[in-house]
Design a protein around this nucleic acid. Structure first.
Lengths: 191, 191
DNA sequence: AAGCTAGCGGAGGGGTGCCTCCGGATGCAA
DNA sequence: TTGCATCCGGAGGCACCCCTCCGCTAGCTT
């Protein structure tokens, strides 16, 4: 990671004039909604309409479809990884569980996005690194405290949990119950 | 379910002439490959090309995109649910685990398909019933034998496991390791 | 062998989405 | 206030895909 935890400069194209910045932000927000609603197939013209700008403006900020995907994705990842800091004061197990809950909530709406990006993407890799940098310490701490089994890595946990979020749950209660089962699997073998 | 566990007649349009049946089967196989490769967005013209038939033939068998999706999906589900019968002789825990392994292998390639269908589909519901009919007995048996916790249902397990398969794993070893963690979560609380 | 009919292929109409381009509008500095 | 560089909007070219339609082919029956 570069200094100060900056996002990779691959898409560092934030405009300078006030109105332009407003549009840029509106576009990201609109894109997030559109992708969550219609999946990755959402049309860019629809995104522009939601943002209340012309299609030309969209393309000036994001030269193509993928750039927009990536920008939205990066934005989300950074919010998540920042949130890990708040949890440092909780007991190890609780901190890990709390962060994983946030993780679930985060990924749930990003299905389509991830699907689109994981084919091949520089950004995707660097985002994963950012997430891991945020969550891995919570995991190590829990392992050091003896409340999580030693024979698995953080990567395993992420996949277990993120998979969970891909499934559609009829109720939040069930989602939490299943998440609970998965978390039980993380505990060390019977003390 | 109708008698003899037939698939719902919603799409019971299997052609009768020999060449037609060949084409029908080739189309299903081609569609399965195309969807696995390019996701749900694969073009139907590409499917027809892979199957070595004209686009007209595709549309005669499957009036629209969704019908083709459903036909492929049903075909897969039936293969899976049939496979549960082989496992009756294993010990309860082993039988459940073995079936869930097959389940994972099955869902892994069906991501795009499921994504497309779960929006709203009669077929999807009835297929789920078929899967549940196949797997639920294995689960009950394991619970009766005391090797699976009592406070969860088969539905919870399916979602836990199927979610798992949505995640992309770099190696089969990791996939199995993570699956193992999930399965540990199914065991009863420390005896 | 011959006819009937189910089935075949693919051209093409209609529609949608991606992205480019450029004349006009507007924030910002002096 | 004035001027200019930046930014805006959306018409339209291009490509792709869905699905229909119809003249032709070839299994199946007798």
């Amino acid at each position: 990671m570069t200094s100060a935890g900056q996002a990779p400069e691959v898409f560092a194209r934030r405009p300078k004039r006030a109105d332009a910045r407003r549009n840029y932000d509106a576009l990201i927000a609109a894109a997030r909604d559109a992708f969550a609603e219609n999946g990755a197939a959402a049309s860019l013209e629809d995104v522009a309409r939601r943002a209340g700008v012309g299609i030309g403006t969209l393309y000036r900020n994001f030269p193509n479809r993928r750039h927009l995907f990536e920008a939205v994705y990066v934005e989300e990842v950074r919010a998540l990884s920042r949130s890990a800091a708040d949890l440092a004061e909780l007991p190890p197990w609780d901190a890990l569980v709390a962060w994983l809950h946030r993780f679930v909530a985060y990924v749930a709406t990003k299905r389509a996005l991830a699907e689109e990006l994981l084919h091949d993407s520089e950004i995707f890799r660097s985002c994963r690194m950012e997430i891991y940098a945020a969550g891995e310490p919570l995991m190590s701490r829990a392992q050091a405290a003896g409340v999580v089994r030693e024979d698995i890595g953080f990567d395993d946990v992420v996949r277990l949990i993120s998979g969970l979020t891909m499934a559609q749950f009829p109720s939040p209660e069930q989602r939490d119950r299943v998440l609970g089962v998965a978390l039980d699997g993380l505990r060390p073998p019977a003390a």
